[in-house]
Amino acid sequence: MFIAATIAVLITMALTLTRALMGPTLFDRLLAVNSFGTKTVMLIAVYGFMTGRPDFLDIALVYALINFLGTVAVLKFFEYDDPAAATYQEDDY
């Protein structure tokens, strides 16, 4: 059961990572990264149960908070930066 959940979460992580690399805007990357962080929390929680030692859930807790912090920090950066500069599509690559 936990193995199935772990594999599902890993597949999800791969898909969101694809979006994070594809873009096209920075907000898409940020959305994918935020979603990826939530999946990492789930992965660590499920993995702890899978190995039968669920003592390390504190780490998942830390991740959940750090993930939120990172997203909000980047968004704050946008708010203080020149708003027009943020939506440009990356022209090369």
Partner: peptide, 22 residues
Amino acid sequence: RDLLGAVILLGVYSLVAAGAFV
């Protein structure tokens, strides 16, 4: 080429590395 995107990806890189450390 976009530095902000690279910084965001570096954050994810650290997060994945930390997951692997667990």
